[in-house]
Design a binder for these strands. Structure first.
Length: 397
DNA sequence: TCTGGGGTCCTAGGACCC
DNA sequence: TCTGGGGTCCTAGGACCC
Protein backbone atom coordinates (compact mmCIF):
# COMPACT_ATOMS: atom_id res chain seq x y z
CA UNK A 1 0.00 0.00 0.00
CA UNK A 2 1.40 3.30 -1.07
CA UNK A 3 1.87 5.98 1.56
CA UNK A 4 1.73 8.72 -1.04
CA UNK A 5 -1.25 11.01 -1.50
CA UNK A 6 -2.64 9.17 -4.46
CA UNK A 7 -6.37 9.71 -4.57
CA UNK A 8 -7.72 12.55 -6.68
CA UNK A 9 -11.10 14.14 -6.16
CA UNK A 10 -11.98 16.03 -9.33
CA UNK A 11 -14.95 18.41 -9.18
CA UNK A 12 -16.15 20.72 -11.94
CA UNK A 13 -16.77 24.28 -10.79
CA UNK A 14 -20.36 25.60 -10.92
CA UNK A 15 -20.87 22.97 -13.57
CA UNK A 16 -24.12 24.01 -15.33
CA UNK A 17 -23.22 27.70 -15.16
CA UNK A 18 -19.74 27.01 -16.53
CA UNK A 19 -21.19 25.14 -19.51
CA UNK A 20 -23.39 28.18 -20.24
CA UNK A 21 -20.40 30.53 -20.02
CA UNK A 22 -18.39 28.23 -22.27
CA UNK A 23 -21.10 28.16 -24.94
CA UNK A 24 -22.09 31.83 -24.80
CA UNK A 25 -19.19 34.30 -24.72
CA UNK A 26 -21.34 37.20 -23.55
CA UNK A 27 -21.94 35.33 -20.29
CA UNK A 28 -18.25 35.06 -19.45
CA UNK A 29 -17.14 37.08 -16.45
CA UNK A 30 -20.74 37.89 -15.59
CA UNK A 31 -23.03 36.58 -12.84
CA UNK A 32 -24.97 33.68 -14.38
CA UNK A 33 -27.80 31.74 -12.80
CA UNK A 34 -29.11 28.53 -14.32
CA UNK A 35 -32.62 27.93 -13.16
CA UNK A 36 -36.31 28.08 -13.54
CA UNK A 37 -38.07 28.88 -10.27
CA UNK A 38 -35.10 27.78 -8.20
CA UNK A 39 -31.36 28.15 -8.70
CA UNK A 40 -29.86 24.97 -10.15
CA UNK A 41 -26.40 26.47 -10.46
CA UNK A 42 -24.75 29.85 -10.03
CA UNK A 43 -21.49 31.07 -11.53
CA UNK A 44 -18.83 32.26 -9.10
CA UNK A 45 -19.62 35.86 -10.08
CA UNK A 46 -23.19 35.24 -8.84
CA UNK A 47 -22.03 33.33 -5.76
CA UNK A 48 -20.01 36.40 -4.80
CA UNK A 49 -23.36 38.18 -4.30
CA UNK A 50 -24.60 35.42 -1.99
CA UNK A 51 -26.55 33.42 -4.57
CA UNK A 52 -26.68 29.73 -3.66
CA UNK A 53 -27.95 26.52 -5.22
CA UNK A 54 -31.60 25.66 -4.38
CA UNK A 55 -32.41 29.28 -3.55
CA UNK A 56 -35.60 30.64 -5.09
CA UNK A 57 -35.03 32.59 -8.26
CA UNK A 58 -36.78 35.61 -6.78
CA UNK A 59 -34.44 35.72 -3.80
CA UNK A 60 -31.44 35.28 -6.11
CA UNK A 61 -32.51 38.25 -8.26
CA UNK A 62 -32.84 40.38 -5.14
CA UNK A 63 -29.32 39.52 -4.07
CA UNK A 64 -27.87 39.94 -7.54
CA UNK A 65 -29.99 42.18 -9.80
CA UNK A 66 -27.35 42.13 -12.54
CA UNK A 67 -27.52 38.33 -12.83
CA UNK A 68 -28.37 36.77 -16.17
CA UNK A 69 -30.81 33.91 -15.64
CA UNK A 70 -30.78 31.18 -18.28
CA UNK A 71 -32.95 28.05 -18.52
CA UNK A 72 -31.21 24.71 -17.98
CA UNK A 73 -30.04 22.68 -20.99
CA UNK A 74 -29.75 19.24 -19.43
CA UNK A 75 -28.73 17.49 -22.65
CA UNK A 76 -25.67 19.74 -23.03
CA UNK A 77 -24.65 19.12 -19.41
CA UNK A 78 -24.95 15.36 -19.89
CA UNK A 79 -22.79 15.56 -23.04
CA UNK A 80 -20.15 17.64 -21.25
CA UNK A 81 -20.18 15.20 -18.34
CA UNK A 82 -19.65 12.29 -20.71
CA UNK A 83 -16.59 13.94 -22.26
CA UNK A 84 -15.21 14.81 -18.84
CA UNK A 85 -15.54 11.19 -17.68
CA UNK A 86 -13.75 10.04 -20.85
CA UNK A 87 -10.82 12.24 -19.83
CA UNK A 88 -11.02 10.82 -16.29
CA UNK A 89 -10.80 7.28 -17.67
CA UNK A 90 -7.83 8.15 -19.84
CA UNK A 91 -6.16 9.54 -16.74
CA UNK A 92 -6.69 6.52 -14.47
CA UNK A 93 -8.13 3.03 -14.86
CA UNK A 94 -10.00 3.32 -11.54
CA UNK A 95 -12.66 6.04 -11.64
CA UNK A 96 -15.58 6.23 -9.20
CA UNK A 97 -18.20 8.72 -10.31
CA UNK A 98 -20.07 10.49 -7.49
CA UNK A 99 -22.42 12.64 -9.54
CA UNK A 100 -22.71 14.25 -12.96
CA UNK A 101 -19.75 16.53 -12.22
CA UNK A 102 -17.36 14.84 -9.79
CA UNK A 103 -15.36 11.65 -9.38
CA UNK A 104 -12.57 9.99 -7.44
CA UNK A 105 -9.53 8.75 -9.36
CA UNK A 106 -7.10 6.24 -7.90
CA UNK A 107 -3.63 7.05 -9.24
CA UNK A 108 -1.53 4.79 -7.04
CA UNK A 109 1.26 2.97 -8.82
CA UNK A 110 1.23 5.32 -11.79
CA UNK A 111 4.41 7.27 -11.00
CA UNK A 112 6.55 5.65 -13.68
CA UNK A 113 4.13 6.16 -16.52
CA UNK A 114 2.41 9.37 -15.52
CA UNK A 115 4.49 11.10 -12.84
CA UNK A 116 3.54 12.07 -9.29
CA UNK A 117 -0.11 12.41 -8.24
CA UNK A 118 0.39 16.17 -8.34
CA UNK A 119 1.73 15.95 -11.91
CA UNK A 120 -1.29 13.83 -12.86
CA UNK A 121 -3.66 16.33 -11.28
CA UNK A 122 -2.03 19.25 -13.11
CA UNK A 123 -2.33 17.32 -16.37
CA UNK A 124 -5.94 16.40 -15.70
CA UNK A 125 -6.93 20.01 -15.09
CA UNK A 126 -5.16 21.02 -18.31
CA UNK A 127 -6.83 18.22 -20.31
CA UNK A 128 -10.32 19.11 -19.10
CA UNK A 129 -9.70 22.77 -19.89
CA UNK A 130 -8.38 21.92 -23.38
CA UNK A 131 -10.79 19.18 -24.41
CA UNK A 132 -13.98 20.25 -22.67
CA UNK A 133 -13.39 23.93 -22.05
CA UNK A 134 -14.40 23.84 -18.39
CA UNK A 135 -12.68 24.76 -15.13
CA UNK A 136 -12.19 21.93 -12.66
CA UNK A 137 -10.80 21.74 -9.15
CA UNK A 138 -8.77 18.76 -7.95
CA UNK A 139 -7.98 17.71 -4.39
CA UNK A 140 -5.16 15.22 -3.85
CA UNK A 141 -4.72 13.21 -0.66
CA UNK A 142 -4.08 9.79 0.79
CA UNK A 143 -7.79 9.12 1.47
CA UNK A 144 -11.04 9.79 -0.35
CA UNK A 145 -12.34 11.92 2.45
CA UNK A 146 -9.32 14.24 2.58
CA UNK A 147 -9.22 14.51 -1.20
CA UNK A 148 -12.88 15.57 -1.18
CA UNK A 149 -12.32 18.14 1.56
CA UNK A 150 -9.21 19.41 -0.24
CA UNK A 151 -11.08 20.07 -3.48
CA UNK A 152 -13.82 21.91 -1.58
CA UNK A 153 -11.20 24.12 0.06
CA UNK A 154 -9.39 24.73 -3.24
CA UNK A 155 -12.45 25.81 -5.25
CA UNK A 156 -12.79 27.39 -7.75
CA UNK A 157 -10.37 26.38 -10.50
CA UNK A 158 -7.80 25.18 -7.99
CA UNK A 159 -5.49 22.35 -7.03
CA UNK A 160 -4.65 21.36 -3.47
CA UNK A 161 -2.36 18.53 -2.40
CA UNK A 162 -2.51 17.39 1.22
CA UNK A 163 0.83 15.68 1.96
CA UNK A 164 0.69 12.72 4.38
CA UNK A 165 2.70 14.58 7.03
CA UNK A 166 0.27 17.52 7.07
CA UNK A 167 -3.07 15.77 7.26
CA UNK A 168 -4.13 16.55 10.82
CA UNK A 169 -2.74 20.08 10.59
CA UNK A 170 -4.99 20.58 7.55
CA UNK A 171 -8.02 18.85 9.02
CA UNK A 172 -8.33 19.96 12.63
CA UNK A 173 -8.78 23.73 12.18
CA UNK A 174 -11.63 23.20 9.67
CA UNK A 175 -15.22 23.99 10.71
CA UNK A 176 -17.32 20.85 11.11
CA UNK A 177 -19.55 21.91 8.22
CA UNK A 178 -16.66 21.12 5.91
CA UNK A 179 -16.89 17.43 6.77
CA UNK A 180 -18.50 15.26 4.13
CA UNK A 181 -21.58 13.88 5.87
CA UNK A 182 -22.17 16.73 8.31
CA UNK A 183 -25.30 18.60 7.27
CA UNK A 184 -27.58 21.05 9.06
CA UNK A 185 -29.00 18.51 11.56
CA UNK A 186 -25.63 17.14 12.66
CA UNK A 187 -24.03 20.59 12.71
CA UNK A 188 -26.78 21.86 15.02
CA UNK A 189 -26.33 18.95 17.43
CA UNK A 190 -22.58 19.57 17.58
CA UNK A 191 -22.93 23.34 17.96
CA UNK A 192 -25.33 22.81 20.87
CA UNK A 193 -22.42 21.20 22.67
CA UNK A 194 -20.05 24.00 21.72
CA UNK A 195 -18.23 22.01 19.07
CA UNK A 196 -17.24 24.03 16.02
CA UNK A 197 -14.06 22.51 14.57
CA UNK A 198 -12.87 19.08 13.50
CA UNK A 199 -10.15 19.27 16.17
CA UNK A 200 -12.83 19.64 18.83
CA UNK A 201 -14.58 16.54 17.49
CA UNK A 202 -11.28 14.64 17.64
CA UNK A 203 -10.99 14.99 21.42
CA UNK A 204 -14.39 13.35 21.98
CA UNK A 205 -14.67 9.64 22.71
CA UNK A 206 -16.33 7.54 20.04
CA UNK A 207 -19.04 6.51 22.53
CA UNK A 208 -19.87 10.17 23.14
CA UNK A 209 -20.32 10.82 19.44
CA UNK A 210 -22.44 7.67 19.07
CA UNK A 211 -24.73 8.79 21.90
CA UNK A 212 -25.11 12.18 20.21
CA UNK A 213 -25.50 11.13 16.58
CA UNK A 214 -26.38 7.45 16.44
CA UNK A 215 -24.19 4.46 15.80
CA UNK A 216 -23.16 4.79 12.18
CA UNK A 217 -22.88 8.58 12.10
CA UNK A 218 -20.97 8.63 15.42
CA UNK A 219 -18.47 6.03 14.30
CA UNK A 220 -18.07 7.65 10.93
CA UNK A 221 -17.41 11.09 12.35
CA UNK A 222 -14.98 9.75 14.96
CA UNK A 223 -13.00 7.96 12.28
CA UNK A 224 -12.89 10.98 9.99
CA UNK A 225 -11.80 13.36 12.76
CA UNK A 226 -8.88 11.00 13.41
CA UNK A 227 -8.17 10.77 9.72
CA UNK A 228 -9.12 7.13 9.40
CA UNK A 229 -10.77 6.43 6.05
CA UNK A 230 -10.03 2.99 4.61
CA UNK A 231 -12.51 3.28 1.71
CA UNK A 232 -11.04 2.34 -1.64
CA UNK A 233 -11.90 4.04 -4.88
CA UNK A 234 -14.49 1.69 -6.34
CA UNK A 235 -14.53 1.73 -10.11
CA UNK A 236 -17.34 -0.85 -10.38
CA UNK A 237 -20.13 0.78 -8.40
CA UNK A 238 -23.57 0.39 -9.87
CA UNK A 239 -26.61 2.53 -9.41
CA UNK A 240 -28.90 1.28 -6.62
CA UNK A 241 -32.08 3.15 -7.47
CA UNK A 242 -33.59 5.39 -10.09
CA UNK A 243 -36.30 7.92 -9.52
CA UNK A 244 -38.27 10.79 -10.96
CA UNK A 245 -40.51 13.38 -9.40
CA UNK A 246 -42.64 16.37 -10.26
CA UNK A 247 -43.56 19.38 -8.23
CA UNK A 248 -47.28 20.03 -8.61
CA UNK A 249 -47.49 23.57 -7.36
CA UNK A 250 -49.22 24.43 -4.13
CA UNK A 251 -52.45 26.03 -5.23
CA UNK A 252 -55.61 24.07 -5.84
CA UNK A 253 -56.16 20.41 -4.96
CA UNK A 254 -55.48 18.05 -7.83
CA UNK A 255 -58.15 15.82 -9.29
CA UNK A 256 -57.64 12.05 -9.18
CA UNK A 257 -57.46 12.06 -12.97
CA UNK A 258 -54.72 14.68 -12.97
CA UNK A 259 -52.73 12.75 -10.36
CA UNK A 260 -53.07 9.56 -12.35
CA UNK A 261 -51.84 11.30 -15.50
CA UNK A 262 -48.79 12.49 -13.58
CA UNK A 263 -48.21 9.00 -12.26
CA UNK A 264 -48.44 7.43 -15.71
CA UNK A 265 -45.89 9.93 -17.04
CA UNK A 266 -43.48 9.15 -14.21
CA UNK A 267 -43.86 5.39 -14.62
CA UNK A 268 -43.35 5.52 -18.37
CA UNK A 269 -40.23 7.64 -18.04
CA UNK A 270 -38.72 5.40 -15.36
CA UNK A 271 -39.60 2.08 -17.00
CA UNK A 272 -37.98 3.35 -20.17
CA UNK A 273 -34.79 4.31 -18.32
CA UNK A 274 -34.81 0.96 -16.54
CA UNK A 275 -34.98 -0.96 -19.81
CA UNK A 276 -32.36 1.29 -21.43
CA UNK A 277 -30.05 0.38 -18.55
CA UNK A 278 -31.01 -3.28 -19.04
CA UNK A 279 -32.07 -3.63 -15.43
CA UNK A 280 -35.13 -4.55 -13.46
CA UNK A 281 -36.50 -3.39 -10.12
CA UNK A 282 -38.25 -5.13 -7.25
CA UNK A 283 -39.18 -2.23 -4.98
CA UNK A 284 -41.46 0.59 -6.05
CA UNK A 285 -41.65 3.62 -3.79
CA UNK A 286 -44.16 6.41 -4.11
CA UNK A 287 -42.85 9.70 -2.76
CA UNK A 288 -45.23 12.38 -1.58
CA UNK A 289 -44.72 15.90 -0.36
CA UNK A 290 -47.44 17.98 1.19
CA UNK A 291 -48.40 21.63 1.52
CA UNK A 292 -46.64 21.95 4.89
CA UNK A 293 -43.50 20.45 3.31
CA UNK A 294 -43.75 17.25 5.28
CA UNK A 295 -43.07 14.09 3.32
CA UNK A 296 -44.24 10.51 3.17
CA UNK A 297 -43.35 7.40 1.25
CA UNK A 298 -45.35 4.30 0.37
CA UNK A 299 -43.55 1.29 -1.01
CA UNK A 300 -44.11 -2.22 -2.20
CA UNK A 301 -41.65 -4.98 -2.96
CA UNK A 302 -42.39 -7.52 -5.66
CA UNK A 303 -41.29 -11.14 -5.56
CA UNK A 304 -39.43 -10.82 -8.86
CA UNK A 305 -37.66 -8.01 -10.64
CA UNK A 306 -39.51 -6.34 -13.48
CA UNK A 307 -38.99 -3.64 -16.07
CA UNK A 308 -42.51 -3.81 -17.44
CA UNK A 309 -44.45 -0.58 -17.56
CA UNK A 310 -47.73 -2.32 -16.75
CA UNK A 311 -46.47 -4.06 -13.61
CA UNK A 312 -44.84 -0.90 -12.27
CA UNK A 313 -47.91 1.16 -13.12
CA UNK A 314 -50.46 -1.10 -11.45
CA UNK A 315 -48.31 -1.31 -8.31
CA UNK A 316 -47.87 2.47 -8.27
CA UNK A 317 -51.62 2.97 -8.68
CA UNK A 318 -52.34 0.74 -5.69
CA UNK A 319 -49.85 2.72 -3.58
CA UNK A 320 -51.38 6.02 -4.68
CA UNK A 321 -54.90 4.78 -3.94
CA UNK A 322 -53.83 3.63 -0.47
CA UNK A 323 -52.38 7.07 0.23
CA UNK A 324 -55.39 9.03 -1.00
CA UNK A 325 -56.88 9.83 2.44
CA UNK A 326 -53.56 11.33 3.52
CA UNK A 327 -53.33 13.25 0.26
CA UNK A 328 -56.81 14.71 0.71
CA UNK A 329 -56.02 15.74 4.27
CA UNK A 330 -52.63 17.32 3.76
CA UNK A 331 -52.68 18.63 0.18
CA UNK A 332 -50.20 17.14 -2.26
CA UNK A 333 -47.46 19.35 -3.71
CA UNK A 334 -45.06 16.77 -5.13
CA UNK A 335 -45.43 13.35 -6.62
CA UNK A 336 -42.40 11.13 -7.13
CA UNK A 337 -41.52 7.54 -7.82
CA UNK A 338 -38.35 5.62 -7.05
CA UNK A 339 -37.41 2.17 -8.25
CA UNK A 340 -34.99 0.27 -6.05
CA UNK A 341 -33.72 -3.20 -5.35
CA UNK A 342 -32.39 -3.02 -8.88
CA UNK A 343 -31.64 -6.60 -9.79
CA UNK A 344 -28.37 -7.50 -8.17
CA UNK A 345 -27.55 -9.80 -11.04
CA UNK A 346 -29.32 -12.73 -9.52
CA UNK A 347 -29.31 -15.75 -11.75
CA UNK A 348 -32.56 -17.44 -12.62
CA UNK A 349 -32.60 -20.86 -14.21
CA UNK A 350 -35.48 -21.97 -16.29
CA UNK A 351 -35.54 -25.53 -17.56
CA UNK A 352 -37.90 -26.30 -20.39
CA UNK A 353 -38.30 -29.55 -22.27
CA UNK A 354 -36.07 -29.52 -25.29
CA UNK A 355 -37.46 -30.80 -28.52
CA UNK A 356 -34.65 -32.04 -30.66
CA UNK A 357 -35.62 -30.87 -34.06
CA UNK A 358 -37.21 -27.57 -33.22
CA UNK A 359 -35.12 -24.60 -34.28
CA UNK A 360 -37.16 -22.22 -32.19
CA UNK A 361 -36.65 -23.96 -28.84
CA UNK A 362 -34.15 -21.36 -27.68
CA UNK A 363 -36.27 -18.45 -28.80
CA UNK A 364 -39.27 -19.93 -27.04
CA UNK A 365 -37.29 -20.25 -23.83
CA UNK A 366 -36.03 -16.68 -24.06
CA UNK A 367 -39.54 -15.45 -24.74
CA UNK A 368 -40.74 -17.30 -21.67
CA UNK A 369 -38.02 -15.62 -19.58
CA UNK A 370 -38.93 -12.22 -20.98
CA UNK A 371 -42.58 -12.77 -20.23
CA UNK A 372 -41.88 -13.74 -16.66
CA UNK A 373 -39.31 -11.16 -15.72
CA UNK A 374 -39.61 -8.36 -18.27
CA UNK A 375 -37.25 -8.07 -21.22
CA UNK A 376 -35.25 -5.28 -19.60
CA UNK A 377 -34.67 -7.29 -16.45
CA UNK A 378 -32.62 -9.85 -18.31
CA UNK A 379 -29.09 -8.57 -18.71
CA UNK A 380 -27.43 -11.83 -19.68
CA UNK A 381 -28.57 -15.28 -20.65
CA UNK A 382 -26.60 -18.45 -21.16
CA UNK A 383 -27.57 -21.85 -22.43
CA UNK A 384 -26.60 -24.50 -19.92
CA UNK A 385 -25.96 -27.90 -21.40
CA UNK A 386 -26.02 -31.15 -19.53
CA UNK A 387 -22.43 -31.78 -20.53
CA UNK A 388 -19.91 -29.79 -18.52
CA UNK A 389 -18.46 -27.04 -20.63
CA UNK A 390 -21.50 -26.61 -22.77
CA UNK A 391 -22.37 -23.09 -21.69
CA UNK A 392 -23.22 -20.81 -24.55
CA UNK A 393 -23.84 -17.08 -24.19
CA UNK A 394 -27.15 -16.17 -25.81
CA UNK A 395 -27.31 -12.47 -25.18
CA UNK A 396 -23.81 -11.07 -25.36
CA UNK A 397 -23.34 -8.05 -23.11
C1' DT B 1 -34.47 30.28 2.65
C1' DC B 2 -41.12 29.43 1.53
C1' DT B 3 -37.96 25.31 -1.44
C1' DG B 4 -36.31 21.46 -8.03
C1' DG B 5 -34.76 16.98 -9.25
C1' DG B 6 -31.70 13.12 -8.81
C1' DG B 7 -29.33 10.17 -5.76
C1' DT B 8 -26.93 7.43 -1.20
C1' DC B 9 -27.01 5.47 3.32
C1' DC B 10 -28.86 4.56 8.11
C1' DT B 11 -32.40 3.46 11.73
C1' DA B 12 -36.18 1.22 13.88
C1' DG B 13 -40.11 -1.72 14.31
C1' DG B 14 -42.58 -5.68 12.78
C1' DA B 15 -43.21 -10.13 10.33
C1' DC B 16 -41.27 -14.26 9.79
C1' DC B 17 -37.92 -18.16 10.01
C1' DC B 18 -34.99 -21.68 12.44
C1' DT C 1 -47.10 -23.27 26.35
C1' DC C 2 -46.08 -17.10 26.76
C1' DT C 3 -40.93 -18.42 26.04
C1' DG C 4 -34.32 -17.78 24.06
C1' DG C 5 -31.26 -16.26 20.59
C1' DG C 6 -30.03 -15.32 16.02
C1' DG C 7 -31.05 -13.97 11.53
C1' DT C 8 -33.39 -11.85 7.04
C1' DC C 9 -36.57 -9.00 4.73
C1' DC C 10 -39.89 -5.25 4.32
C1' DT C 11 -41.70 -0.62 5.27
C1' DA C 12 -41.38 4.15 6.63
C1' DG C 13 -38.85 7.97 7.91
C1' DG C 14 -34.77 10.87 8.05
C1' DA C 15 -30.09 12.92 7.10
C1' DC C 16 -27.14 14.07 3.67
C1' DC C 17 -25.02 14.96 -1.01
C1' DC C 18 -24.83 17.47 -5.69
Amino acid sequence: VSKASAILHADLDAFYASVEQRDEPRLRGRPVIVGGGVVLAASYEAKAHGVRTAMSERRARELCPSAIVVPPRIRQYADASKTVFEVFRRTSPVVEGLSIDEAFLDVRGMARIAGSPEDIAVGLRRDIREHVGLPITVGVARTKFLAKVASAVAKPDGLLVVPPNAELAFLHPLPIERLWGVGPATATKLHERGIATVGEVAVLAEATLISMLGRAAGRHLHALAHNRDPRRVDGARRRRSIGAQRALGRSSPKSPAALDANLVALVERLAHRLRAARRGCRTITLRLRFADFSRATRSHTLAEATAQTQTILSTSRRLLAAASPTIRRRGLTLLGLALANLDDDRAIQLALPFERDRDDALDTTLDELRDRFGAGAITRAVLLGRDPGLTVPLLPD
